[in-house]
Amino acid sequence: MCGSLYVDSDNPISALDKEQVVARLVESYGYSPFFAEKLVGVLGEEALSAAEASEKPLRKAIRVNTLKTTHRELVQRLGGKGFQLSRIPWLRNGYWVQAEPDTPPLGATHEYLFGYYFVQSPPSMYAVEALDPRPGETVLDLAAGAGGKATYISQLMENRGVLVAVEPKRGKVAALRSNVSRMGCTNTVILQMDGRSLPSLGMVFDRVLLDAPCTSSGVVSRHPALKLRVSAKDVAEQQNLQVALLEAAYRALKVGGVLVYSTCSYFREEGEEVVGRLVDRGASLTPLGSPGETVSKKWVRFYPHMHGTEGFFVCRVTKN
């Protein structure tokens, strides 16, 4: 259903030349010239389709929390309240929300309060499934945010083994704790700290997820102001932080361990270029089974016009 998840770099522009596409992104969709040029650099002429798709709200999706309920029970209960769900075939626990009632909102049903599901974008679920955490392992979520991915890691670990979730911001770490509690995760240790200080802990992990802070250029549909706000300075600053966090994450990974790096950004500076630093140091990219395809790719990119999701980058690395 999702077609190709991979777009080769430097898509050639055939019908319109680059300047024309950039001009249309600026004039018709309100992007800054900087953002528009970046987007065209990545997607070529398809940047217009991505921009058009980003004008609409993203499709909503949820993750069934199998720590507390079953797929069947949740689909039945939400169905009884007027929600229409359809399985996302390339995810283990993901559903598109095809239709919802006027009330209650998706984020305020009793089932939500009970922690039976998490409102989560498919690429975020995909990143955790790419990490493939197993029961009994020691896993790190280095930029845990409000815990969407951390709670999914605990779920796939079946609450066995240990998950260390690191988040520096006070507001987010409070939300992280609240979500860990709501979702019934019992194997989590939360640290409020700067992930760059990770090596000082002296711990080694079987698997590490780094969903890095980024410019959020992939989520303009939710935050249209980003079209004008993201600057070259932001990209450079975020890249520096991403490289530092990735270095720390890689150092904390055991030999043979798996690291998943992801961002909700379109820009190569925040995706391929950051991961490239590890490859230069001898790490190997472990191909990802592209969802909906039989072919594995070195990394996966999601786009709004192709997948109905935010722009997102996922890459898996093995430490040699």
Binding site: R177, T188, G202, M203
Partner: peptide, 12 residues
């Protein structure tokens, strides 16, 4: 182990 080096915000 972590609480020796860092302040654990929450656990278990």
């Amino acid at each position: 182990q972590l609480s020796v080096k860092r302040n654990v915000y929450f656990a278990g």
